[in-house]
Design a protein around this nucleic acid. Structure first.
Lengths: 198, 198
DNA sequence: CACGAAACTTGCGCGCGCGCAAGTTTGCGT
DNA sequence: ACGCAAACTTGCGCGCGCGCAAGTTTCGTG
């Protein structure tokens, strides 16, 4: 049951992040103040900061939505019938499949602007808590669960880092699709996940 | 050979962080503005932000010094004759042994104040780059090295988190010395490090 | 030694993040 | 239906973070 309170709250959250993305695409990220976003969403600037703790956060939230919580749900879903490592890797890779379409130019915007890129790379940190919980249900020790969850989140961040970098240096370009990149970066952690599960 | 330039730079860096810590201990962290720190160190407030990117950073730097780079050095030192996992764990645990004495009250200050605590927990992120480099010399794939370095840094952060929390909840208290806690948190990653080395 | 490039410092100004206290809205029990 | 408590919004003010451009110091080179 969702009360009026929660519905309104979610509405302004959505309004804020969509306004943020639209304005950033129209005028460029540098030319958008939080006052503009707040005004476009019909709330006070102060309220903006009750929802998002930085100017960039709303913009990346528009493209990220609530991916982190969906990942946790996806892991829980496959857990009963799968090994821990496979469940985690598949679930994460799935949630990072290209939604393509409208978010293409948004992602270009993010990878271009340094501030947005940083906010984008910080997003997977939100994986830690839900992942810890779901890992803890599988293995005994909650402390081990915490470490593994943090490591998985870190690996995802590294994957996004690589994917974001246009290379440009003199070394090998990673390229490939994001889901495959995520899988490759999570691979080194498989032995640790297996060992914890045994 | 160290030029005058670098010596001066290091001098003001030290002056800033020591002033920051002293003032924070004297008046409480909330009652210290960066203007105060800058003035006490004899530089302009603007210069402060050329050295530290937040008000808290200087304070934790006073107690952390350059622990991260020393860790990297310590790992390199034992690498030839030891397995990767052991080298990393021993080196990190060593660098987190209690320097006791004067930094006792400083650490209490940090764990008390939420802002300082956050800055303190962010510190091990600086491990990633040097660790990646040293791991990459041991194993082939630089991407795997990156992931493992990030995971180790994450595990260290988790250890500091636990150590910082006064528990207070209803669950098991971790307690024990910090080096032992660090070892325990790094243990789950050993299989991953072993597998990468093989 | 002289001098030009490079590194570093500093004042200025703008926008952000957030604590606080007052006002407004929603929810819930009676 | 009423009213109170809890949740949420908002204006205000302070300090911070940082880009920019001008001034100052250090470094290498002829």
């Amino acid at each position: 049951m969702t009360g009026l309170r929660e519905r309104k709250k979610e509405a302004t959250r959505v309004a804020l992040r969509e306004a943020a993305l639209r304005l950033a695409l129209e005028h460029g990220p540098a030319n958008v103040r939080v006052d503009d976003i707040a005004e476009a969403a019909g709330v006070s600037p102060r309220t903006y900061n009750n929802y998002f703790s930085s100017r960039e956060e709303a913009i990346v939230a528009a493209v990220t939505a609530d991916r982190e919580s969906r990942i946790a749900a996806a892991v829980t879903e496959r857990l009963p019938e799968t090994r821990l490592a496979a469940a985690i890797i598949d679930a994460i890779a799935e949630q990072y499949t290209d939604p393509g379409e409208q978010s293409r130019d948004a992602l270009l915007l993010i990878t271009t602007n340094p501030g947005l890129r940083t906010a984008f790379l910080d997003a997977p940190a939100a994986l830690e808590d839900p992942l810890e919980e779901v890992i803890a249900t599988r293995i005994g020790d909650p402390q081990t669960a915490r470490v593994l969850a943090a490591s998985v989140a870190a690996a995802v961040r590294v994957a996004l880092e690589q994917w974001t970098q246009p290379a440009g240096n003199g070394l090998v370009v990673v390229s490939g699709s994001l889901p495959e990149l995520v899988r490759r970066m999570l691979e080194p952690l498989v032995p640790a996940l297996d060992a914890a599960e045994a």
